[in-house]
Amino acid sequence: MKRVGSSRGAPKATGNPSKKCLLKLYVAGASPKSLAAFANLKRICEAHMPGEYEIEIIDLLESPQLAKGDQILAVPTLVRRLPEPIRKIIGDLSDTERVLVGLNLKAGTA
């Protein structure tokens, strides 16, 4: 179902659980957009909140039933479950500024 571990890699260390950012990246297969999104996400997270995030990758082609829960229409979609409120960022995350705004990180890191 969930392909969680493979991409969690290096930044796994969780410094402060309360501040931890829970991210879900919905993709449909290993398309160029999916790969680009994952690469961009990892880069942004490493740069702005090292050690304070967890990424879960969900391939909808493998587990299509999960699309309904998070109201996924577009892929790739990045869903930030925690901290509240839920935020959704769609696209290949190539626009770093907008991703940071979307993750509410822009204000904090500036």
């Binding site: 109201q71 979609t77 935020r87 959704k88 626009d95 907008r98 991703v99």
Partner: peptide
Amino acid sequence: HIERSEIEETGEYDLDGLFVR
């Protein structure tokens, strides 16, 4: 359910999620 305020668009995407659902 589409909540405009929750969605931020960054770059290329498609609606494969809808297709999958």
